[in-house]
């Protein structure tokens, strides 16, 4: 056999220009760097290269470099993305690459934002509460079909890119009234876990602000884990809320769906 890998990656080395936002809570500006880009490099590699060779103190977060930890979130040419999964050869060749921090959270420094709000929100959501074990040895019997939905939501790597793109948070700053798509997904994972017995529907409506979501699906489009946030998590939750309370947008949605 010995099929050589096709490798759609280009093979040329070239110089590319970057504009990276540098600054802190008091303000900042874009700083220009140029980087020698070799085949297969991702944006995070370029940031590291800048760090090692030109700006030792350029701040960014990262861990796995493989799209698994959700640390390296930023906005690349205006699009919320993981820096470690954005290949340079997918960006326009002759244009300067703009890299800036997520806009929905307060700036700490350079590409690093204060995401602590997310951790606070999560703490308030009622934790997992399983039914009594099914079997004498303390185990449960559940089947693959029953866990699949929850497993989709549990793929979430907490990159918070969906929070960043959601206009309710990004433009309207409703952080006090709306938990955002990430935590709607989190709640959905709990609600759709076949073992869970807790009820979070009243919280969703009253405290978590699920009504603010107008199902625009921007969050689904940026999710690096390809979680169908709106269709599979938010809409079913909204339907559960409707069954207990009244929610105009879901009613409208149901009408369109026929």
């Amino acid at each position: 056999m010995s099929s050589a890998p096709a490798g759609t990656t280009s093979t040329e080395t070239r110089i590319m220009n970057f504009r990276v936002w540098r600054g802190d809570a008091n303000g900042g500006a874009f700083v220009e760097y140029s980087v020698e880009v070799t085949p297969g490099m991702v944006v995070l590699d370029c940031i590291h290269k800048i760090q090692a060779e030109q700006a030792q103190d350029l701040a960014c977060r990262w861990n796995c470099k493989a799209g698994k930890c959700g640390s390296c979130s930023a906005e690349i040419n205006g699009k919320p993305s993981l820096m470690c999964m954005t290949r340079m050869d997918t960006l326009p060749k002759d244009e300067t690459v703009m890299v800036e921090p997520m806009q929905a959270f307060p700036i700490l420094r350079d590409l690093v934002t204060d995401v602590s709000w997310n951790y606070e929100v999560k703490k308030k959501i009622k934790p997992f509460k399983p039914r009594a074990p099914d079997n004498a040895d303390g185990t449960w019997t559940t089947y693959q079909v029953d866990v699949e939905r929850a497993q989709e939501f549990r793929k979430c790597i907490e990159c918070f890119l969906c929070q960043d793109v959601c206009h309710v948070l990004r433009d309207h700053h409703k952080h006090d009234e709306f938990i955002g798509p990430r935590f709607l997904v989190f709640t959905a994972a709990l609600e759709m876990n076949p073992l869970d017995t807790e009820d979070r529907i009243a919280d969703l409506k009253k405290r978590d602000g699920i009504g603010y979501c107008n199902i625009g699906k921007c969050c689904t489009k940026v999710c690096p884990e390809h979680i169908t946030i709106t269709d599979n998590a938010i809409i079913p939750l909204k339907e559960r809320v409707v069954d207990e309370f009244y929610d105009p947008i879901t009613r409208l949605f149901r009408m369109f769906k026929g």
Partner: peptide
């Protein structure tokens, strides 16, 4: 098993075990 009791959702066997 304790992880399951704390909310982990493992892949299942045909007869419904981990």
């Amino acid at each position: 098993r304790e992880l399951e009791a704390w909310g982990a959702v493992f892949d299942r066997t045909k007869d419904g075990k981990i």
